[in-house]
Amino acid sequence: MTDTSLALDPAEMPSARRLPGDLAIWVFILAEMLAFAVFFASYAFARSKDVEMFNFYQQTLDRNAGAFNTLLLVTGSWFVVLAVQAAHRDDSRAAARRIGLGFLCGAGFLTVKVFEYAAKFGAGISLSTNTFYMFYISLTFFHFMHVILGMVILAILWVKTRQGAYGSRDAHGLESGAAYWHMVDLLWIVLFPLVYVMR
């Protein structure tokens, strides 16, 4: 490695080559997406062995709640995009506000999900009921925990943004957190049609 490449600040590099956020978060995101991908593939494999059973129990899921949740997460992602843009304009107040709104979208998602779970668990459905519900609960709960982790990250970002930690010079940490939040959103956009809708 030459000294010139070392001296080059990431912000000065051609924009097309710059990876927003930290390489470490991207390794983590790729690992997480791989875990979900294998999980989705397992779902498809299990479903192919008993399509009728999967289709039958799929109808018991609350699609409206799922669709509403999709809307919430997409909106949340949009707020976070706006927050990063605001931070790049050095508008920390606006950035913090938008992170807060993104957080609220996540909270809304969790609330809807808790009601959905309450109905299912109330009906005596568990991981051991059948393979479809095993996947339904495993996938959505695994994702549910990711939403919680995403919200913890957003909360930290909110505090740090209010302290003015991110700006046009360095929005590195904010971008990393935002990338993670988008992953949570993206995973749901695959999960929702796969488990709730697709027949």
Partner: peptide, 9 residues
Amino acid sequence: EYWQWWGSI
């Protein structure tokens, strides 16, 4: 038996 899936994955 769900461990068969979680464990495998």
